[in-house]
Structure formats: C-alpha cells, structure tokens
Design a protein around this nucleic acid. Structure first.
Length: 644
RNA sequence: GCCGCCAUAGCUCAGCUGGUAGAGCACCUGAUUUGUAAUCAGGGGGUCGGGGGUUCGAGUCCCUCUGGCGGCACCA
C-alpha cells in the first residue's frame, strides 16, 4: 500500500503507507528534517512522528515560520510546566497557551513564585531540552483521563476535561518521556531537544482561573520562545526599543506632563503638554464644526437625584467620585457627559426637523478607576473626552454611523494613524432588550461599517448592556491595545430621561442616541500620539516648532528679531541664547525633538538669513528669513487647513 | 481591587554577605564667545518613599503603610 502526498509547490509524490511526516522530511533532505517542527495534512495539524493515515496535501511546518513558532512556544509551555512541577512538587498545572511572541502557563500553588525562581526554572528547562525526552501522543477516553488527573491531584485539569470535552470525544495527552504529561490538542515536537534554547522566562503575574475574578487566583509565568538565539536577541532588542517610546518616559523627557501620589490617575499638564492639547482641541473643534456638530458644555458636578434619574447612581456608583456639601447635599462629579447632553436636547421643544442633532463637548469626566488599572495617560481618573451625541430617528442611525466612521478615519489619518481595524462589540450575556432588538441593532452597525468600507472584527459579547458598539483601537509602544474612537447605539437613555421630539405626524417620539468619540480621551490620545511618533511630533503639533540657536552673543539681537517675526507669523518659537557651543545646542534641541533648529551667527545676522536644520537630518539649509518663515508656516499648517 | 516585583540627589543608576552614602547628566558660580549631536574648572544638593521592629550599629534584615512597574480583572 502507498499514499500520495501533494506538496505546496504542487509536486505529488508517492510514499509508503503509515510513513511519518518526519520520515518524509528526511527523505527530502537532512537539513530540512532538522528545521521541521510539525506538519499539516490538508490543513489539519499533524505530529511529525505520527504515521499518516492517508494521502493529501502535506505542509511541513518550519521552526521559523509563524506556525512553527506556535508549536515551539506550545512546547516551551509544556517544558516550563514540567520544570516547575519537578522543582516545586505539589504545584498543579492548569492552562498554558501561546500568546503573541511567547507563551505562559498558569499554575496553582499555595506558596508564591518569585522572579528569583526564574533562573532555577530556566536551568531545569534547559536540562529537559538536553535530555531530549521523546514526546509521545496518547489518546485516552474521557473518564479514564479524568480519573487519572484526579488521582495525581490535578484538580484543574480534571475539571477542564470534564467541562470542555464532549462525552465520547477522545482526549489527546502528550507526555515527555515517562515523566510528565499534559492534556493538549497538539501538535508537539518529536522530542524536547528540538525545542532548542532560544527561550526566556519574562514575567510573573497573578491571573484568575478562567479569567473570572470570583475564582481562585493562579500564578502565571510568561515566557518568550524563538526559532534560534538570534531571533530571541532581536526580540529582546525590540522590547528595549519599544520601551524608549513609552509616553510616560517621553512625557517626562519632553516636559509634557507629570503625575504624583496625591492625585493618582490625574495629570498635571505642563506648558508644552498643554500646547499640544490645545492644538489638538482647536483642530477637533474645526473638524466637528465642519461635520455639523454644535458644541456645548455641561456641569462638572450634579446632584445625586440627577444621577439616580439617569441610572448611573444604580449602575455606575462604584466608579463615581461622590461628594457632600456643608448643607448635606450629595453630589457627584460627572463620569459621563451623556445625561447632561440629554438635558440640553430636552430644553424647549425639539422637532423632527432638528434631527439628526449632533452635539459635541470636550467633556471633563472623573471616574474612580481600579488602582491596578491606572497606566500613565492611557488610563486615568480624570480625563477629557472628545464626546458627542447624535440624537436621531431610527432610520438615520445607519447613515449617521457611516459618516461618523468616515470622519473618524479621516481625523485619525491626519494624526498619522491608520484605524482600519474596527471591532463590532455584540450582545453581552447580561443585557437589556429582546433578541430581535439585538439582531436588528447589530445588523445596522455592521451595515453602516460596510457602507464606510470597513469590515469589522467581531468582538463577541463586548457590547454595552443596552446596545452594540463599534470600537476603533490602536496599540501602544508596549503592545497593549487601547480604544480611541467609539460609536455606541443607545435606546435606553433617551427613554429613561424622557427625551422627545415632535414628528411629522405632530405626535411625540423618542429619539435614538449615538454616543461617539473620535479620539476617546485627550489624555489617552496624547499618550498614543506620543508613542506613535516616539516623541517627534509632526510640525503642526510640536509644542515648540522652531528653536533659534545662536552661535555667539553677537547674534543675540538678530535672534530676537527672528523670533519676533516668526511668532508674528504664528510659529511656536523658543530662543536658545545660552553661552554654549552650537554643537551642544544642536544636540540638546535634537534630543528635545524640536522639528527645526534655526542657527544664527554673525553671517546670518549680516545677511538676514537663517541656517535651518531639521530633526533627523544633518543638512543645513541657509535661506533668507522671509523665505524661511513662509516655508515653516506652511509646514506648520494643520492638515485640515492645508486642504482648505 | 488581586498576584508578583520595585522605591537611594531633579534624572539615570552604583552601593558584596549589616559598620554610618557615591557616579554621570542636570543645577549654581567662574573662565571661555564658540559654525551644526556634549568646552573646562569649581560648588551646592540626599532624615536612602513613610512608620515601626531586630541589632552595639540598618540604605542593607523583618513587619506595616503609601506609591510606582508588569500581568489579571475592570474600562475612554
């Protein structure tokens, strides 16, 4: 008997029945066989040492491919688990998947692990690799597996099998030699030696069993694993580089803002940071006005009764900053702007002719966020949303959503960000409204996104309890994802707060609300923007656009004149008249990421010129002052005004 | 909030197993007047995050509080 295997290049070859993928690889070439880590037969994973059960399309998965790294990392997780259990008897294994760039394994153990244990664990892992234990795949029956794991005290494993595996389905167990085994879907390497040593344990963390806060807290050990040492070194280098872009670090270096103990999650904006803020705010004001929004401002603190009416007192109180006055009134700082906007909508009578009514506010909100979630500017307790609410009829939802997506994408693009990854957050487990309502609402959001030319990723169960939403998110320097823009459908709040408009029919109707933000919060957005450009803001956003650096004091008067003229032209200019060499000034202002340094010395003063040097370049561009001002002002023009 | 780690000068960090605090940059003063990524010299500056304990003696060991960092959970 023989089987036919089709290779990715289309070649078809005949092999003996029951041949293993590893034997096929060896048959092709020795070096190939060394680098292969698993196989796929007709797209399905297959262990290298598992005899093929028929012909088909065979793909040999190499260790440095994306799929190959998955396999390596999965094996690294198993080797980690074995090492930990050998070194710390009594530790239970739970779950150990791969993640981006690495893997983790969650353990249950009474005593705490410490990062000091990493060295010892890594050493044992290397010993397991050196031992080159054969990795064997076994197929067990469900009850046998449960009994086995229970007998060796692996309660979590037994529970997982009991709940995850359907009765009758076989269970695959992978073991390293005769020493250690774990429930796993596979595939795995033929032996532990093939893992190699390009791995490293990276961090230790707490994690809840099944991600539920009410469950036991497990100890998670994270690691990274790569095809070879070089890849590992490259990865570590990449992490180091990313850390340099961290907005918290840059915020200090560039003197944008600071935070301190007495105001956790609150930002002290310094002059430069606030300049950035105001520039962004002014831009947003122009864009939203042009998109037909009216700008409003609602109170910072409102009576408890108001929040009771909006439903926040009941649902959101743990997150609210509540205060009492000397006259025993209970008030709360606003955690959201929406109820306030409804009040403006309700003031006087609204007609269907007013719809859609687009209301915007740079709304400063306070939310008591869990201490452990605070993170620089990205997650704070006092923040300003570029908030907005569109009051409209149900039949206007789709068009409003579509044009919002287009507006948001255009704005993100002006800041140099691509926001084509949009998530549609669908109905959560605990929700208000019928299934029919959710079917319709989700379909509307999806259709609106498609009409704007984007295919959203579905975020199952992530919607608000009252309606679905679309989220725009981007990643920060260290790989975390943050939501910037969002648009959320809401039928509930207009109802709770009794918002109405008079329809064509003369009767009263309930409007629908679309909560929306394009930047999310100014704080977070500035954080993301800072990381995106590594602190080197584009000219139109840079807090200081030009530094005029003198060569000797002889040029001071001329430098002052240059500064005056540039400022008159609207440029943000600083003077560097210090008694230092020009090389020093160039270095310092370059490190401060100033986009343009204008060097002036005696020569420039005599000829009414400036020597321009751009950030990142070495060229000196000596041009007339008037010409320089014209060029720089044009470069500093915000993108929307440039288009106008 | 939970788990782990961390906290020394404005910043970045050193300070071995307990013996009484140091570097570079920054800052101040002086000299220097300089042509595109660090001019030289001098000086000031720390109750070693707060509190408690062990010890003859604590930056160093223990407890506790506060804050920061990384995850988890929660979220703009």
């Amino acid at each position: 008997m023989s089987i036919l295997l089709t290779f990715p290049d289309g070649a078809v070859r005949e092999y003996a029945d029951n041949i293993t993928p590893l034997a096929v690889a060896e048959n092709i070439s020795k070096s190939l066989a060394k680098k292969v880590v698993a196989a796929k037969i007709d797209g399905a994973w297959w262990d290298l040492t598992r005899p093929l059960e028929g012909g088909g399309k065979l793909e040999l998965v190499m260790r440095d491919s994306a799929d190959g790294l998955e396999v390596l990392r999965h094996d690294a997780a198993h080797v980690l688990a074995q090492a930990v259990q050998e070194l710390f008897p009594g530790t239970q294994v739970t779950f150990g998947p791969t993640v981006e760039d690495g893997f983790y394994y969650d353990f249950a153990r009474e005593e705490s692990f410490s990062t000091d244990d990493f060295e010892k664990i890594e050493k044992r892992m290397r010993e397991i690799v050196d031992a080159d234990l054969p990795i064997v795949r076994k197929v067990w029956e469900k009850q046998v597996a449960i009994a086995h794991f229970k007998s060796i005290g692996e309660i979590y494993k037994a529970e997982t099998i009991d709940e995850v595996i359907k009765p009758g389905d076989p269970i695959t167990i992978y073991s390293h030699g005769d020493k250690w085994g774990d429930l796993c879907r596979g595939p795995h390497l033929p032996s532990t030696g093939r893992l190699g040593k390009a791995f490293k344990l990276t961090k230790l963390a707490g994690a809840y069993w099944r991600g539920d806060q009410n469950n036991a807290q497990l100890q998670r050990i994270y690691g990274t694993a790569w095809a070879d040492e070089q890849q590992l070194a490259d990865y570590l280098k990449r992490i180091e580089e990313a850390e340099k872009r961290d907005h918290r670090k840059l915020g200090r270096q560039l003197d944008l803002f600071h935070m301190q103990e007495e105001g956790r999650g609150m930002v002290f904006w310094h002059q430069k940071g606030l300049t950035l803020w105001r520039t962004i705010e002014a831009y947003m004001r122009r864009r939203t006005e042009a998109a037909g929004y009216v700008e409003v401002r609602t109170p910072q603190v409102l009576d408890r009764v108001f929040w009771e009416r909006s439903g926040h007192w009941d649902k959101y109180r743990p997150n609210m900053f509540i205060c009492e006055t000397a006259e025993q009134e209970t008030l709360s700082l606003k955690p959201m702007n929406c109820p306030g906007h409804v009040q403006i909508f309700k003031f006087g009578q609204r007609s269907y002719r007013d719809l859609p009514l687009r209301m915007a506010e740079f709304g400063a909100c306070h939310r008591y966020e869990p201490s452990g979630s605070l993170h620089g500017l990205m997650r704070v307790r006092a923040f300003t949303q570029d908030d907005g609410h569109i009051f409209c009829r149900e039949d206007q939802i789709e068009a409003e959503t579509t044009s919002f997506i287009k507006l948001a994408q255009s704005i993100h693009a002006d800041f140099g960000m691509v926001s084509d990854k949009i998530a549609l957050a669908t109905r959560p487990a605990i929700r208000a409204g019928s299934d029919e309502f959710w079917d319709r609402a989700e379909a509307q959001m999806l259709a609106a996104a498609r009409a704007a030319g984007v295919e959203p990723v579905i975020a199952e169960g992530d919607g608000a309890f009252y309606a679905p939403k679309l989220d725009f998110s981007v990643k920060d320097a260290i790989g975390r994802e943050w939501t910037i823009g969002t648009i959320q459908l809401d039928y509930v709040l207009p109802d709770r707060l009794d918002a109405e408009y008079v329809g064509e029919d003369g009767g009263k109707h309930r409007p629908v609300m679309l909560h929306r933000a394009i930047l999310g919060s100014l704080e977070r957005f500035i954080g993301i923007l800072t990381e995106n450009c590594a602190g080197a803001f584009p000219m139109w956003l840079a807090p200081v656009q030009v530094v005029i650096a003198t060569i000797t004091q002889d040029a001071d008067a001329y430098a002052q004149e240059v500064a005056t003229q540039m400022r008159a032209a609207g440029l943000r200019v600083d003077l560097d008249l210090r008694n230092e060499k020009v090389g020093y000034k160039v270095r310092e202002n370059s490190l401060a990421k100033i986009p343009v340094i204008a060097v002036v010395g005696r020569k420039e003063a005599e000829q009414s010129t400036v020597a321009l040097r751009r950030l990142g370049g070495e060229a000196q561009d000596i041009i007339g002052l008037a010409e320089a001002i014209a060029a720089l002002t044009s470069e500093a023009t915000p993108p929307d005004l440039k288009r106008a």
